[in-house]
Design a protein around this nucleic acid. Structure first.
Lengths: 343, 343
DNA sequence: CTTATATCGGGAAACGTTTGCGCAATTCCG
DNA sequence: CGGAATTGCGCAAACGTTTCCCGATATAAG
């Protein structure tokens, strides 16, 4: 049905090999032959069969990303979409297709990745976030597959990864509040099995410590990347006899929950509570008041991950850096613009 | 390197054909042989080569979606991510992989789709939104490819599509405001080449007409799916000598822009202006005040699109409905909770 | 005018599957 | 009990490429 390399060959009066060589710009094809074959190709509407090509070349020119089912509750959609946009854009630029897989649970995730990778449908995988003891990473690592992790792995420090310096970012956020005179600063973390939660908590603690401020266990709460978590954290904090005057939050969406709760209870931001969070999603400048947030360059994370993965697929030499750090930047907005005057 | 069907066959003492038949549960294979072969398969860690399979079966078990570059400015990320989640979930359930392609412009989009479809890498395509005179649709239609459109095509009314009844939805939104006593109602539309803009505008006009309310050209403005558009629309409306008391907006993000502007100018919502918009993104209940919005079932749109596309790929009989309508639902929140008392 | 050296292109095997056809052995049925 | 139907499986071709190995012609060198 479809026009194949043989059809082109026949019509051009050459062999299939020649057509193939024209396709790949083989040096030992005369300019004249090349011209002629190319003419016939688009005259016939020829399109190379990617499957056949992959079969013999043993490479698919495509990568996949795992979209974890659990991610629905774990992250804001914005985060993933930005990441995907970055990944797809760079992959496309480098001639790669991107396949999205999904699994309802960890077992399905491993099976999915295994099917794709072992079934030679994709050349590598991008993991969208890093959790502890991830069986997917175990699988990929043990079977020597190409993959890059967005985030950081504690068990496998030598794998390819693209990450922010989350410790530093969180340190910066906290220091920003401290520089405004705040001495009672809380922290709303994410799920404890996420590496990013640990890193940001550490940055927060480091900053407190370096400034000689006291760390209070009751000022640190864990949650999900959801507004509900923010809402709960808010009521917890505000009911404390000795409550913080500012908090650092793991994600903007969590901040939105806090904002909503504070508004309902007629508290004012930033006067009653200052907020700084992470990710700088577009809506964070639209909230009332606009949110101070650390921009972590989500698109850039995805873009770079694509880049690094494809590089590693194409060059076997592992000389490039195993770990890329994407710069972050604190966007100061109204939610943290309130100085505490020392008494 | 990798273990193939032949390796399994050899070790099991059968022919490759038999192994293949075991894989596809061919009826004429004895239970005993099947058992044995399957044992050997996972003993050897066999994974079928998807490319080889596709090559002979002429079907890839995968579909693709076009992620238009221009979409960045066109829609909120949330919309796409929800759509993709729905698509991927259902595709995965039906045993299909999803490939994301992207093009910087319309020409690249056609080329990308063409490469994928003609190159036999995917079996069909989902178009994420409908604009007028879309060359991608022309291409797909003329070449008889499998595809489904999320939205509606005016040129090709008989293609597969999944859509909301946007006319009715917009009618409902407008009627809701009318029922609150509003008689001066504005409309903020999206890009005029998007079919959804036209449909929603029509619903708005129909509702006005049915209620005997006057339509004022200056109360209808066009914009993008961006907060800036909302901001601009807001200043335009509020500077009108005879301004509306309520507006219907094409998208929640646009509403956020209006909200911000109104807040800056010290206007109050809903007292000074009532707002109803579309899409019901999660943040719309977090804004101050929470936004009334029409939930259009984005996930469901994606889910159904997957379903319909794969159905059409698998069954050649075209007896199922060509057009699916996903129900919508008005979520009334504070931004529209203000009645105008008639004098 | 030979012999070496490029230059250009063909033949055929290989990639890992699926599947129509055929053949032997077994079961069925009157 | 003999032929027909059924069951279980192997053979080999085919899917559309790529690429190694050669052969033929042309050009350069001795």
């Amino acid at each position: 049905m479809a026009v194949t390399i043989k059809d082109v060959a026949k019509k051009a009066g050459v062999s299939p090999s020649t057509v193939s060589r024209v396709l790949s710009n083989h040096p030992r094809i005369s300019a004249e032959t090349s011209r002629k074959v190319k003419d016939i190709m688009d005259q016939l509407g020829y399109h190379p069969n990617i499957m056949a090509k992959s079969l013999v070349s043993k490479t698919t020119n495509s990568i996949c990303i795992m979209l974890p089912k659990s991610a629905e509750e774990l992250f804001s959609n914005f985060f993933f979409m930005e990441l995907i946009r970055g990944i797809v854009t760079q992959a496309s630029r480098l001639g790669y297709d991107v396949l999205i897989s999904s699994g309802a649970n960890e077992k399905e995730e491993v099976e999915g990745v295994s099917r794709l990778l072992n079934g030679r449908r994709v050349d590598g995988v991008i993991l969208l976030y890093s959790r502890q003891d991830d069986p997917v990473i175990d699988f990929l690592y043990e079977n020597g597959h190409h993959f890059v992790l967005i985030g950081r792995s504690e068990q496998y420090p030598d794998i390819l990864s693209v990450d922010n310096d989350n410790v530093q970012a969180s340190y910066d956020a906290t220091k920003h509040l401290i520089s405004l005179g705040h001495e009672r600063i809380g922290f709303v973390s994410g799920p404890p099995d996420l590496v990013v939660s640990k890193d940001r908590l550490k940055g927060y603690l480091d900053a407190l410590h370096d400034s000689g401020l006291e760390m209070r266990p009751e000022w640190i709460v864990e949650g999900e990347f959801l507004q509900e978590s923010g809402y709960r954290a808010m009521s917890f904090f505000m009911n404390l006899p000795d409550r913080p005057t500012a908090i650092v939050l793991i994600d903007d969406v969590v901040s939105f929950g806090v904002l909503r709760g504070l508004h309902e209870l007629k508290y004012k931001v930033p006067e009653d509570l200052c907020l700084v969070s992470f990710n700088n999603i577009p809506l964070s400048e639209l909230s009332t008041p606009p949110l101070s947030s650390i921009d972590i360059g989500i698109y850039n994370l995805g873009y770079t991950a694509s880049q690094v993965l494809i590089q590693s697929i194409q060059n076997s030499d592992k000389t490039y850096p195993r770990r890329q750090i994407i710069p972050h930047r604190l966007m100061v907005r109204e939610s943290s613009m309130y100085s505490i005057s020392k008494k």
